[in-house]
């Protein structure tokens, strides 16, 4: 009896426990931070840190969707960069070309994602190989397009979205929270969301239920590319220009945020709420480590250890099942 009960619980546990754990860890980090620096827990600082997490969080939307299918997207780096460079190249800081630039940036990201999805679903290429290859292709295309030196700058309105405030709240935080609500609703309350989880947990069950697995995969990678494009545009607003390699900082942290948020790297389980907190946690961790003023080498080691520790901890949550 007790045995059955334990088994029963372990099936549902990680979905709830992991986001709770990472939320607890974030609170803990804030306590540590406030010991080290006065005002670390002040609402304005919390909002500031949220604003700093937003670009990563938005890139991690796509990564969440892809990881839920059991895949991975390593092409975020140059999708972000390509979108940004095309965006500034078209707009040249000119408000008049804003919408063409946005459409081009998002379109480039989505197209790269579509290509990823087609390769993975139709040609059966493993996600790691396909997206790594796509990352190189996007790097090459970007270098050819920009001839090595990206030109232009972000139009003022994008800068405003990325760095401006609406009353007491940074606009980018509102954008991120808005997107988070939409994404969570799509994942949990729509047919497409159900199919995504289903394909991720078992492609076999999904196929035998009549779900078009290929379509679901292609859609997931396209969404991921689109999100990378959006991240590129918003990050351009933040840094007010585009530069080569600007997307590199997003790839591994986006995957880390998804994992810290409790999603299974094998697919089928996880939530965007978890990823949201995961992305925030990583930003707070980076900030706290910066305050402590330890060398960048140690910072990276701690960063890596935290991710491994989280995976071990989450596995302990599910262990009884195995």
């Amino acid at each position: 009896m007790t045995n059955t009960r334990r088994m029963r619980n372990s099936f549902a546990r990680p979905v709830v426990l992991a986001p709770l754990t990472i939320t607890g860890c974030t609170v803990l980090l804030f306590l540590v931070g406030s010991i080290l620096a006065r005002g670390f827990m002040a609402p304005s600082n919390v909002l500031m840190l949220l604003a700093l997490s937003a670009d990563l969080g938005i890139a991690a939307i796509g990564e969440t969707v892809v990881i839920l299918t059991g895949g991975i997207d390593l092409s975020i780096a140059w999708n972000v960069t390509a979108a940004s460079i095309i965006f500034t190249g078209i707009t040249q800081g000119n408000e008049g070309h804003l919408w063409i630039g946005v459409a081009a940036g998002l379109g480039v990201g989505a197209l790269a994602g579509l290509a990823n999805g087609l390769g993975i679903a139709k040609l059966n290429i493993s996600p790691i190989v396909m997206t790594l290859g796509m990352n190189n292709i996007m790097q090459g295309l970007t270098l050819i397009y920009s001839q090595g030196t990206p030109s232009g700058s972000a139009p003022a309105s994008i800068k405003e979205i990325a760095t401006g405030w609406l009353g007491p709240i940074p606009i980018i935080v509102l954008v991120w929270i808005g997107l988070a609500i939409v994404v969570s609703a799509c994942l949990h309350a729509t047919r497409g969301g159900r199919y995504l989880y289903s394909v991720g947990e078992s492609p076999m069950v999904s196929r035998l239920t009549g779900i078009d697995n290929d379509f679901v995969l292609i859609a997931a990678y396209t969404v991921s590319g689109f999100c990378a494009g959006l991240t590129g545009i918003l990050f351009t607003g933040f840094s007010s220009m585009s530069f080569l390699g600007m997307g590199d900082q997003f790839v591994l942290p986006a995957i880390a945020a998804v994992v810290l948020g409790g999603a299974s790297i094998y697919g089928g389980r996880g939530s965007y709420a978890g990823t949201f907190v995961g992305a925030f946690f990583l930003t707070v961790l980076t900030t706290v480590l910066a305050i402590v003023n330890i060398s960048i080498g140690f910072r990276n080691i701690i960063y890596g250890l935290v991710i491994i520790a989280a995976v071990l901890l989450y596995r302990a949550y599910t262990r009884e099942r195995e």
Partner: peptide, 15 residues
């Protein structure tokens, strides 16, 4: 082949 073991009865029934 038949069930999503990690998903609820409701999700499985309506899939």
């Amino acid at each position: 082949e038949g069930l999503l073991l990690h998903k609820s009865i409701a999700v499985n029934l309506s899939l």
